[in-house]
Nucleic acid binder design. Structure first.
Length: 594
RNA sequence: GCGCCCGUAGCUCAGCUUGGAUAGAGCGUCGGACUUCUAAUCCGGAUGUCGCAGGUUCGAGUCCUGCCGGGCGCGCCA
């Protein structure tokens, strides 16, 4: 927020060093000073300068000399009240009256747009929420969706034109296995209720997989039956591939049940998807693309004896195996997911003018996406360089991996329901004055928020072992902690009867006021950083720090009954706004009461 | 065998991409603060070979190399 002043300061520092004929690196890096109760920036450039001189003396000693000389020589730029050397660091302290006013005024002027970046002139597509149909949405899918939605909000807010894409896996042998079992054992049945129906279908999926999976010590009879079932489902997949009307209709109907459930959950999660791609729609284009790749000499065709594949390492002339071989078509000519992802990527680039393409998909598919991006590169798509697989570790259970096929999953709906139930319990105890309606709203905001925060606030590279109490923590480092800060700010503002139009911060700010203002001022930079690194975790860390600072402020700095009432009301309003903006970028709602 | 990821306090994790001032949180634990702007909060105490070993550097939790431990992946599942 203080770019021009920092530029001026840097220029002044450069001049001072030039005059003394001291070498220094091209980039002069300023960092916040680490001292509490003071607000400024510092640089360690004196160390680098001393090292660059390469004289025989002690670098530490020389760095101190340079720092104190430079601090003396620097003309005090506007907006700073002091430049001084501390050890070998050159520190510049802000004129807090000027900056406090600027920060608070900016927030209150820009409101929900505070922190929004300038348009970047690039279009980003974020693909997330790719659950398979005929399964049910579990907590692992929730991690994916919340991560993707938060990322989409971040890149959009940072200034990218953003397209949200979902890519449900609505076809494949797994899907057909479920359709097969439905027809064979449950033909014509259909339970009431979107989620009941979806979960019922997921149960059939699980049961079907039991029937076609080999068990230890099975009898000949059992084995025969299993092989018969397996043949039946594969036959059904072939019929689907040929467009058999009856199979297609059965598939379409059951598919709708899963999609209805998905749409409902996406709405709960606040994810407004702009475009749905379906795996089944990529089937035909994928076949065409494979033919093109064969004719270009990129893919090799060994049908009917073998498959169609790309030997990527060989094409790239790598001597080590890294990207290996990607198989595009089965021996029988049916498409594999690699071929379908190539078709999807092409559609994104050609029909949606995407400059950057982000895929939020779990870490198991890392090799797959490395392969897809390399094939796109070989094929001549320059956007391949700006395609990024945002991988994340899976959500496991204390007993091990979740698997729809094995039927041991924690369903998102169950967690969401329990989360809201727990919030209602706490409200009953702590805030019984809330109306029924308010309780319902708060339970949703806080319950779902807590879960979202638990999923975002762990680095995407790490696995999450799902634990009910940890995922639904309402204390400490959690969404409710941050939401509570927002509620407290709101509560002060409700009693203040309006926010003054202007106020001066030209007084000796208390340590906690200063920290709060400084923290608020960092928000726009955090937005940019999180968006550039595709890392919602940065924002979740910031939101917690901001809330922590506000809670500290709340306890130690009186607002309404103080002689700095006007300034502090404005500061409280700015804090509330920044908390709200931060929470929204995390796909968490900021409640006014809780 | 090859590739990717992880290893920081008793537990769960930030910090590493951009090297910089005493390595931080939460949970748990011990002790304090509610007739006060909502205690889903705050304040204080205790706890660290930052996996190990080298290297680069004035300076390494952060960068490089090797090793150890764990996870995941590696031609017709997605």
């Amino acid at each position: 927020m203080f770019d021009s002043e920092i530029l001026e300061l840097t220029a002044s520092l450069r001049e001072a060093l030039d005059r003394a004929d001291i070498p220094y690196p091209e980039q002069i890096q300023w960092n916040p000073t680490p001292f509490r109760g003071r607000w400024g920036i510092g640089t360690a450039v004196a160390f680098q300068a001393a090292a660059l001189e390469k004289t025989a003396g002690d670098v530490q000693e020389r760095a101190r000399e340079i720092a104190s000389m430079a601090a003396r020589e620097i003309a005090l730029p506007s907006g700073f009240e002091l430049v001084q050397a501390e050890k070998a660091y050159i520190n510049a302290y802000f004129d807090t009256a000027i900056y406090a006013t600027r920060v608070v005024d900016t927030v209150l002027q820009q409101k929900e747009n505070f922190g929004r970046g300038a348009p970047k002139g690039e279009r980003v597509m974020v693909e997330y929420a790719q659950p398979n149909t005929h399964h049910s949405f579990h907590i692992g899918h929730a991690r994916n969706t919340v991560l993707g939605e938060s990322l989409a909000r971040l890149v959009e807010f940072a200034g990218f034109e953003t397209v949200r894409a979902s890519y449900p896996g609505d076809i494949g042998l797994g899907v057909i296995t479920c359709v097969w079992a439905y027809k064979k054992f449950h033909d014509g049945q259909e339970p009431e209720g979107v989620h009941e129906r979806g979960q019922w279908l997921a149960k059939i999926y699980y049961e079907a997989n039991q029937l076609v999976t080999a068990r230890e010590g099975e009898t000949d009879e059992e084995r025969q039956l299993r092989e018969q079932y397996d043949a039946e489902r594969r036959e059904m997949f072939r019929l689907w591939d040929r467009g058999d009307p009856e199979v297609r209709e059965l598939w379409r109907r059951t598919r709708e049940w899963s999609l209805a459930e998905l749409y409902d959950i996406l709405e709960m999660l606040g994810a407004e998807i702009d475009v749905f791609f379906f795996e089944s729609d990529m089937d035909e284009p994928a076949k065409e693309i494979v033919e093109e790749l064969i004719s270009l000499g990129i893919a090799e065709d060994e049908r009917p004896e073998g498959t169609v594949f790309v030997k990527i390492d060989e094409k790239l002339n790598l001597d080590r195996e890294k990207y290996r071989t990607s198989v595009l078509l089965r021996q029988d000519g049916t498409t594999l997911y690699s071929a379908k992802d190539l078709a999807l990527a092409k559609r994104k680039f050609d029909s949606y003018d995407v400059d950057r393409s982000i895929y939020v998909v779990d870490v198991r598919q890392s090799l797959h996406f490395d392969q897809v991006f390399k094939i796109l590169e070989l094929w001549g798509f320059e956007q391949a360089a700006k395609s990024h697989h945002l991988s994340y570790g899976f959500v496991t259970l204390p007993g091990g991996m979740m698997s729809s096929r094995m039927g041991n999953v924690v369903l998102y709906m169950d967690v969401a329901t329990e989360a809201q139930r727990r919030v209602l319990d706490i409200i009953a105890e702590k805030n019984p004055s809330l109306s029924e309606e308010e309780r319902r709203v708060v339970a949703r905001q806080v319950g779902l928020g807590a879960l979202n925060y638990a999923l975002i606030s762990v680095d995407n590279t790490k696995e999450i072992v799902f634990d009910w109490d940890k995922a639904l923590s309402f204390e400490g480092r959690s969404a409710p902690y941050i939401q509570n800060a927002h509620v407290r700010a709101n509560s002060i503002l409700k009693k203040s009867e309006g926010v003054p139009d202007a106020a001066s911060f030209d007084y000796e700010l208390l340590e906690m006021e200063l920290e709060l203002i400084e923290r608020i001022s960092q928000f726009p930079d955090v937005v940019q950083r999180a968006a550039n690194e595709y890392k919602p975790l940065n924002m979740s860390n910031y939101a917690y720090e901001l809330a922590k600072t506000f809670h500290g402020f709340y306890h130690t700095v009186p607002v309404l009954r103080s002689d700095r009432r006007e300034a502090r009301i404005r500061l409280t309003a700015a804090a509330k706004q920044t908390l709200a903006n931060s929470l929204r970028l995390l796909d968490i709602e900021p409640p006014d009461r809780m």
